[in-house]
């Protein structure tokens, strides 16, 4: 179906917040083109389709029936991922699934198996792998300059739980909890930098914003690895002040340390809103362009998918175990089959 001389035809399922980032990236690309969108809110789909000059559908079935759609980005809530993923792949379309791959380890494997059986590309939106800083850190690790990594600290703390988080995110039955919804980003980075899957997880959470929350809006996961390395993954959406935004990436090796803070290389600005740190120019945009370029390449069998499907499944395994650790207050071993 794919003609390598033509842009890959992309369809987007669900036109909420994260879809906007994908659409913005697609506008800058020549290797792929947005050809259709769909949403359960058909009027919203039509509105976006008009703005993006593509087809708009009110159902997934209609979008999948469009022959111009060669690959699909699923941008819907977490509880829909498994069923939609299988449906998209069964229709013969390559799939970029927003993280997490699924809400359960079994669900993740079901989607992965469907892709493997059909010989289709399956990528998962672990977008932090594509950031300037993540790539640079990996390059330092690969160079051997800091020796063998034995500790990773990833911190992604912010204060935007409201109005940023919708009702389904706050419901662990629909989002899988914070470990699944955002924690998979951190788990993926930690495992990637350590260079092997985690073997255990111990997690501690807090209801920082309100005790009535059903999820832990402040979450710390401690990962253990078979080689003796460890990682601390801290993620919060309940920081105060609400404008707070702090990201820290540190890898400690046997010979040295590589670290940076989110805006350390950006711009410090004193404005009427106080002191703020602005990210480096084009930082966010490059993440999604790189992710989509990698997806296009894997769809055309020109490159391996990034991250590997096994890593995306592993992120779900660890995140699900983390939720168990939160409930039971103990360390959980990760399945040996990972």
């Amino acid at each position: 179906m794919t003609d390598h001389g033509m842009p890959l035809g992309i369809g987007i399922v669900g036109v909420g917040g994260i879809a906007l980032s994908h659409m913005a990236a697609l506008r800058t690309m020549t290797s792929a083109q947005l050809v259709a969108v769909c949403d359960v809110d058909a009027s919203r789909a039509a509105e976006v389709a008009h703005a993006e000059r593509c087809e708009g559908y009110g159902s997934v079935e209609a979008l999948l029936a469009d022959d111009a759609v060669e690959a699909v980005i699923v941008c819907t809530p977490n509880m829909t991922h498994e069923a939609l993923g299988v449906q998209v792949l069964a229709a013969g379309k390559h799939l970029l699934m927003e993280k997490p791959l699924a809400m359960t380890p079994a669900g993740a494997r079901a989607v992965a198996n469907e892709a493997a059986e059909r010989g289709l590309a399956l990528a998962v939106g672990h977008s932090h792998r594509f950031s300037d800083q993540s790539v640079a850190i990996r390059e330092v690790i690969d160079s051997g300059e800091i020796g063998t990594p034995r500790f990773v600290r990833v911190v992604m703390n912010g204060g935007w739980i409201w109005p940023g988080w919708q009702a389904w995110v706050l419901n662990p039955a629909l989002s899988g909890g914070h470990s699944l919804h955002n924690g998979t980003h951190l788990i993926d980075l930690a495992s990637w930098w350590i260079g092997e899957p985690a073997t255990s997880v111990f997690s501690v959470g807090q209801h920082a914003t309100s005790e009535s929350l059903e999820i832990y809006d402040y979450l710390v996961m401690e990962l253990g690895f078979a080689n003796g390395a460890s990682a601390v993954c801290e993620i919060s959406r309940g920081e105060r002040p609400r404008s707070a935004s702090y990201l820290e990436l540190t890898v400690v090796g046997t010979k040295g340390v590589v670290s940076r803070e989110w805006d350390a290389e950006g711009v410090l600005a004193w404005t009427d809103t106080g002191l703020t740190a602005w990210a480096a120019d084009g930082f966010a945009e490059r993440v999604f362009v790189r992710e989509l370029e990698a997806f296009v390449a894997s769809s055309r069998s020109e490159a391996e998918v990034i991250p590997p499907v096994s890593a995306a499944i592993h992120a779900v395994d660890v995140a699900a175990a983390s939720e168990t650790s939160l409930r039971e207050g103990r360390t959980i071993e990760i399945g040996a089959s990972v």
Binding site: R150, F151, Q206, Y218, E222, G228, A231, T254
Partner: peptide
């Protein structure tokens, strides 16, 4: 967690008063 050579130690816990 500690590396086998004992060169690195990491821990995560919750204090009695709830502080992580």
């Amino acid at each position: 967690h500690s590396t086998s050579d004992g060169g690195a130690t990491t821990f995560l816990g919750r204090a009695g008063h709830g502080v992580v």
